[in-house]
């Protein structure tokens, strides 16, 4: 779990422009503030897949859209995962955007880098546990995987109680730096 400088810069639209010592100091400061404000929480659950390849066994949940079906081709189980940085980061960014907007956008970019790294760590952990037979993460809102299905993630992982994640009427999650995703596990036979 870390904030990657190069990635942070990329989110800020950096393309090799000149960086002054003060820019670098402020990037450090933004990263420090973001780490201090973050209350990282993660959750995951493993489900077997029905023969249709998109229905989670024992849950009554079926993933919609053709893209997720393609993504999970050859999988016989999935992990449903979620991670969040907590509301402290939302509050930090809102405050900085008011008091010092340049630092605010740096903190926002730092937070994106941090949540991505948290999600990557979670993916790696799962991949290790499954002997590397896992797919990449696939999230609601990608291609035709509907955002509405965020409500299923909320229920499957009890995200309100366990992670402090809230969901709006338009299925957007708060804290804003929250990631949910599906990771497929390919069958052993499939792998050979």
């Amino acid at each position: 779990m870390n904030i990657d400088r190069a990635e942070t810069l990329r989110y800020l639209g950096f393309r090799g422009q000149e960086l002054s010592p003060s820019d670098l100091d402020r990037l450090d400061r933004a990263a420090e503030l973001t780490l201090a404000a973050a209350d990282v929480r993660t959750a995951k659950a493993r489900f077997g897949l029905e023969p249709d390849g998109v229905t989670l066994q024992g849950t009554g949940v079926t993933f919609c859209g053709s893209a997720i079906g393609r993504h999970l081709a050859g999988c016989d189980a999935v992990y449903v995962v979620a991670c969040t940085l907590g509301l402290g980061v939302d509050r930090l960014i809102a405050r900085l955007m008011r008091e010092d907007p340049a630092l605010g956008v740096m903190a926002d970019a730092s937070a994106v880098s941090l949540i991505e790294s948290v999600a990557d760590d979670l993916s790696d952990e799962i991949s290790d546990a499954e002997g590397g037979r896992t797919t990449r993460r696939f999230s609601c809102g990608y291609a035709d995987f509907p955002l509405e299905q965020q409500a299923d993630f909320m229920r499957l992982l009890d995200m309100g109680r366990r992670l402090g994640v809230f969901i709006g009427a338009d299925y957007l999650m708060t804290p804003q730096k929250t990631v949910t995703a599906v990771i497929g596990v390919r069958g052993e036979r499939e792998e050979q």
Partner: peptide, 14 residues
């Protein structure tokens, strides 16, 4: 033109 990036734009504006 990509000669400066976002935080620098904002600092200038401030």
């Amino acid at each position: 033109a990509g000669r400066i990036f976002l935080p620098q734009l904002i600092s200038s504006a401030e």
